[in-house]
């Protein structure tokens, strides 16, 4: 049995974790990125700054009023798997320059946003809102192991306690996106120190980045402690017992929460060469008599350290 050696399967994730621990009514908080961002801001947690939203076609004129702003990202609020994201890095005469170097006319950008509003990129094709936010420039420590795009760090939280993490690295195949299904690399991360381990690429175990050829292991993720502290605070806001939090590390602002996920995938186990279930059971044991809602973020991190001592201690 795979569960005996701690591997979490899709059925158990659904039956025992997402359905049981994530009340449906809290899903909208993480499915809409604008709602997520507003909630994070109101609780003083860092996220890329929201410049403004576009909810109706007539608000497209806000875009024409931009005079100083040179760098920003246009995103759909309910976009799935990184679709519909348009990163703008400069203005050349009358045209917008994208991070890939294409020059787009004002009309094209407005057409793109009207598509977002009509739901072209949203889950299920429902009407959507567009928003314009701060353009994240990735921390240079990741430069040798990422190909275009911004790497992000996925932390799995169980009852607000960090369980497992991975660094997701864009590749040529993923087209700059940090989504494992689309061909990004997932590198495991040691929870104690935030140092990357080996990784997984398209379901295969790998040690090196396929595009740059550099080793993906042994990189110390900056601000690791801060990342753990911030993620432990998210549980009180979003109340999802089993969720994934995606961080990016901006070169100027440090760690920022990009989005949250109520159904995080299982490939993180391959990236870490370790099963989730061992850790989740470890937490269950430590939590036994305590009510997860009443714990403070510090107490959660305390449990986290005990759990890690138990789990990682026996391997390293």
């Amino acid at each position: 049995m795979l569960s005996d050696i701690g591997i979490l399967g899709m059925n158990r994730r659904n039956a025992d974790f997402t359905i049981t621990r994530n009340p449906r009514k809290y899903y909208p908080l993480v499915d809409n990125k604008i709602t997520t961002k507003e909630l994070l801001e109101s609780h003083g947690l860092p996220a890329p700054v929201l410049y403004f939203q576009i909810r109706h076609i007539f608000e497209l004129k806000l875009l024409r009023e931009i005079t100083r702003l040179r760098e920003f990202v246009i995103k759909p609020a309910r976009g799935a798997a990184g679709r519909g994201i348009l990163p703008i890095v400069d203005r050349v005469e009358n045209k917008w320059k994208t991070s890939k170097g294409d020059l787009l006319t004002q009309e094209y950008v407005e057409y793109h946003i009207s598509n977002i509003l009509a739901g072209l990129y949203s889950l299920g094709g429902v009407d959507d809102d567009a928003f314009i936010e701060y353009y994240v420039r990735s921390h240079p420590v990741f430069n040798p192991i990422s190909y275009h795009g911004v790497p992000d760090i996925r932390i799995i939280l169980y009852m607000g306690i960090p369980v497992m993490a991975m660094l997701r690295l864009p590749t040529l195949k993923s087209g700059g996106k940090a989504n494992l299904h689309q061909g990004a690399i997932g590198a495991g991360v040691s929870m104690q120190e935030g140092i990357t381990l080996k990784g997984v690429y398209l379901g295969k175990l790998v040690d090196r980045h396929p595009d740059t050829g550099n080793s993906i292991s042994g990189i110390r993720i900056p601000f690791w402690k801060t990342i753990l502290e911030i993620s432990a605070k998210t549980f009180n806001i979003f109340k999802l017992g089993y969720m994934g939090v995606d961080f990016v590390i901006d070169v100027l602002l440090g760690p920022l929460i990009l989005e949250l996920n109520a159904r995080p995938g299982l490939n993180i186990q391959l990236a870490n060469r370790d099963g989730l279930l061992t850790r989740l059971r470890g937490i269950d044991e430590l939590m036994k008599s305590r009510c997860p809602e009443k714990l403070s973020p510090d107490e959660r991190l305390e449990i986290f350290r005990e759990m890690i001592k138990k789990i990682e201690g026996q391997y390293f």
Binding site: I7, G9, N11, R12, D16, Q269
Partner: peptide, 12 residues
């Protein structure tokens, strides 16, 4: 049912 799916034996 929260057991392992047969195809996951191969995946993992």
């Amino acid at each position: 049912y929260n057991g392992i799916r047969i195809t996951e034996l191969w995946r993992f």
